[in-house]
């Protein structure tokens, strides 16, 4: 079975969360709850507020109003180090040229658990956690490689191992499958599901969300427009409303989850329409 990564997991409650930058509203009154141990997909068009919501849940930004609690504790009221011991946030991969070994990268995840001054760096306990975390994402054999020699999929895995080394009870991932080939996308997401840690991830690909998420939160223009299981949220009416595209839903022949089949946009040439709206 899965190599267990110890650390309790906890549910998240988002209440009436709002955020704006320079008078521009990014998020308006978002409320949602995420059950412990589940994988939640955060969907929505570009600019819907997905990354902002992740940053607010991660405690990296302060909401204009509203609150986020993790296992009953308000995240905004936690000291940063405390939050970092309980929440790991991975932004989109932005640092392909970092000159560190894989183990050094994963050990960064131990920083919140060290003493503030001169914490033991790379001590045996930390290295054991690093090895476990790498094993949990199937990247144990990469431990001695240099970061910049890894493929995109391997880098993303190691980043998740770094997040796991924080021993978080909540994992936040922003577009974890960006720039990955299809095989890397599938194995990465199935590994996230197998961790048993509460995870919220922003995704662009609706079909990946339908296949790997227990729960979907759909954002549009900073508002939560739908929440529920993939089968409840990913229906042609809602997708058409939010993304402005036509689609049909079919059942996955092997796994039974919804599969979204897109058609060309409404503004396309006329002959396409007949087939699309069948």
């Amino acid at each position: 079975m899965v190599v267990a990564v110890p650390g309790s997991t906890a549910g998240v409650v988002i209440e009436n969360l709002s955020f704006s930058i320079d008078e521009q509203v990014i998020l308006a009154g978002v409320s949602a709850s995420v059950a412990a141990g589940t994988v939640t997909g955060l969907l929505g068009p570009n600019g819907a507020g997905k990354s902002t919501l992740l940053r607010l849940v991660g405690g990296l930004a302060t909401p204009a109003s509203g609150s986020v609690t993790l296992g009953g504790d308000e995240i905004g009221a936690m000291p940063r180090r405390e939050a970092a011991r309980r929440i790991a946030l991975l932004e989109q991969n932005t640092a392909p040229s970092v000159d560190l070994s894989v183990e050094d990268v994963v050990l960064l995840g131990r920083i919140p658990h060290r003493t503030r001054l001169l914490g033991t760096f790379g001590g045996d306990d930390d290295r054991a956690v690093a090895a476990e975390s790498l094993a949990a994402v199937g990247a144990g054999e990469l431990v001695d490689r240099m970061w910049h020699t890894l493929s995109g999929g391997q880098q993303q895995r190691v980043q998740i191992a770094r997040a796991l080394a924080q021993r978080p009870s909540l994992l936040l991932l922003d577009e974890p499958t960006n720039h990955l080939d299809v095989s890397a996308q599938l194995s990465l997401l199935s590994q996230v599901g197998g961790l048993g840690t509460t995870a919220i991830m922003a995704l662009h690909d609706l079909n990946l969300a339908a296949a790997f998420c227990d729960h979907i939160l759909l954002l549009q223009d900073g508002k939560l427009v739908a929440a529920g299981t993939p089968a409840e949220v990913l229906v042609p009416e809602i997708i058409g409303e939010v993304y402005g595209v036509e689609c049909d839903i079919i059942e996955h022949p092997r796994d039974g989850h919804p599969v979204i089949v897109f058609s060309a946009p409404r503004t396309a040439v006329a002959p396409m329409r007949a087939a699309a709206s069948a």
Binding site: R55, G58, L60, R80, R81, E82, A83, A84, R85, I87, A88, L89, L90, E91, T94, A95, V98, L100, V105, L108, G109, I111, P112, R114, L117, L118, G119, F121, Q166
Partner: peptide
Amino acid sequence: VLAATRLDAFAFGDTAAASLGI
């Protein structure tokens, strides 16, 4: 030197450092 660990945390940028509790 006492802040060395915090310096290490900057390797992957500001957001990564912040999410490591810095």
